[in-house]
Simulated assay, not measured.
Amino acid sequence: MRLDRELFRTIVAHTPLISIDLIVKNKEEMALLGQRQNRPAQDFWFVPGGRIFKDESIEDAFKRISREELGLEISLDKATFIGVYEHFYNDNFSGTDFTTHYVVHGYEVTLNEEELHLPLEQHNDYCWFNVDSLLKHTNVHQYTKNYFLSR
């Protein structure tokens, strides 16, 4: 369920958000990253993902987030859980007057590029990166790099 903007601002200002990040790889082991349009992490290359809604199971959230972020609904049993991560940002979706804290469940999936229908709501561009290049790239966010460093 999407929340009223002001209510969501209050929640982000006072509580951590629980989310899922999708570490998407292709057959060549390259990772899909999108260039974020919105805060936090605006303008950085980042993995697709989204928050889990209240009363939404992780399975249902995974399906919804994959559908919204990749244009392809994927069931959780097709993914590999890689861990829980924390992301701390100095800004938030509405500005810089408070921070954002995410508790992120990371899942890796391997997909065929042809299956994807990538939307432009959260990311204004997409690119497939080999792991070595994304780890060296200055505009790939450190939180995205951490998914690949920890493996």
Rank of each mutant, 00 (worst) to 15 (best):
F46C: 03
A79L: 07
L72A: 06
F93A: 13
Q35G: 06
E6Y: 09
S94R: 13
I52P: 05
I74N: 02
S66H: 01
A79W: 13
P16M: 00
V104Y: 01
F98Y: 11
E114G: 00
Y85A: 09
R39I: 03
K78T: 13
G83W: 01
L76K: 03
E68V: 05
F93L: 14
S19Y: 03
R9D: 02
A41R: 15
Q35W: 06
V109T: 08
E73G: 10
D43V: 14
D97N: 06
K25Q: 08
I74K: 12
H101S: 02
S94M: 05
A79P: 10
L17F: 08
G34P: 00
G83T: 10
Q35N: 10
E28L: 14
M30I: 08
L70G: 04
E114A: 10
S66G: 13
I18D: 06
R67Y: 10
I11Q: 09
T99N: 11
L111M: 04
W45V: 04
V12Q: 04
K78S: 15
V47D: 08
Y102H: 07
F93T: 08
Y107E: 03
F46D: 10
S94Q: 11
V104S: 11
S75K: 15
E73P: 11
N90V: 14
I18L: 11
A13V: 13
D21K: 10
T10E: 12
I74Y: 12
R9P: 09
S66Y: 05
T100R: 03
A79S: 03
I20Y: 02
S75F: 03
S66T: 12
F81H: 05
G83R: 05
Y85T: 13
K27P: 12
R51D: 08
N38D: 11
E73M: 04
F46G: 00
L72S: 03
L111N: 00
L32H: 02
G71R: 06
L32S: 03
A61G: 02
M30V: 05
L76D: 08
T10W: 13
N26S: 02
H87F: 15
V104M: 12
E73A: 12
Q35M: 09
